[in-house]
């Protein structure tokens, strides 16, 4: 779950937090309240040497509320409204809500995400090289799962165009930003309308 939420964080923060870079994008993040980011997700499995691709949508705000929706290759939704964490998986007979022992742990991490959403990256070592921003987790728990995260700035001084997460086990996940919607008109619905939410641009 930790790894997932870290991916989540960097996915949602990609629109804001880091930049050339890191400081510019960080500053931009503080001026944006809510965001919906559509991304292509490509997971490369070292054992196979192959990539599995899919589509995701992440909605997030500076209060630490997050909706992570996977459209393919399978359908799932994770919502953290700042207090409760809910997860849903789609089966042929319909959506199923999960219970998870990791919830309390995830809530703590989500609180950390909120900090980062406000421009606090103190839990990561930040370096810039090869035109990318490299993030390395400081805490031992995160280090067990994540080797590093490479952010590629979009060049506008405010966003990144991709996030590549390298696991300690050799697998890599590349999130490529397809579209960013700032302050969606129906943003609140992302946390209340679990199954029918669609991003409406202002």
């Amino acid at each position: 779950m930790k790894k997932f939420v870290c991916i989540l964080f960097f996915a949602v923060s990609c629109a804001y937090l880091f930049g050339g870079a890191a400081e510019l994008i960080s500053a931009a993040s503080k001026n944006t309240g809510k965001v919906a980011v559509f991304m292509k997700q490509s997971k490369t499995i070292e054992l196979f040497g192959e990539t599995v691709s899919g589509d995701v949508l992440v909605c997030a705000d500076a209060n630490g509320r997050i909706r992570w929706q996977t459209f393919s290759p399978y359908e799932s939704i994770m919502i953290c409204d700042g207090k409760e964490l809910s997860q849903y998986e789609k089966f042929p007979e319909g959506w199923k809500k999960l219970s998870s022992a990791a919830r309390e742990h995830v809530k703590k991490i989500t609180a950390g995400i909120s900090k980062m959403m406000l421009g606090d990256y103190s839990e990561y070592e930040v370096a810039e090289r090869d035109g990318k921003i490299w993030l390395t987790p400081k805490d031992s728990l995160s280090k067990k799962a994540i080797k590093n995260i490479a952010l590629t700035p979009a060049g506008d001084g405010a966003t990144v165009k991709s996030i590549e997460l390298s696991d300690t086990n050799g697998d890599r996940t590349l999130l490529t930003v397809v579209k960013i919607v700032k302050n969606p008109k129906n943003f609140e619905s992302a946390f209340t309308d679990v199954f029918n939410f669609k991003v409406e641009e202002e």
């Binding site: 779950m1 196979f48 990791a102 086990n169 697998d171």
Partner: peptide, 14 residues
């Protein structure tokens, strides 16, 4: 046949 099983916490087995 190669199989990778993972949860959100990461890989369980390869």
């Amino acid at each position: 046949t190669a199989v990778v099983v993972e949860t959100q916490a990461g890989s369980l087995a390869k």
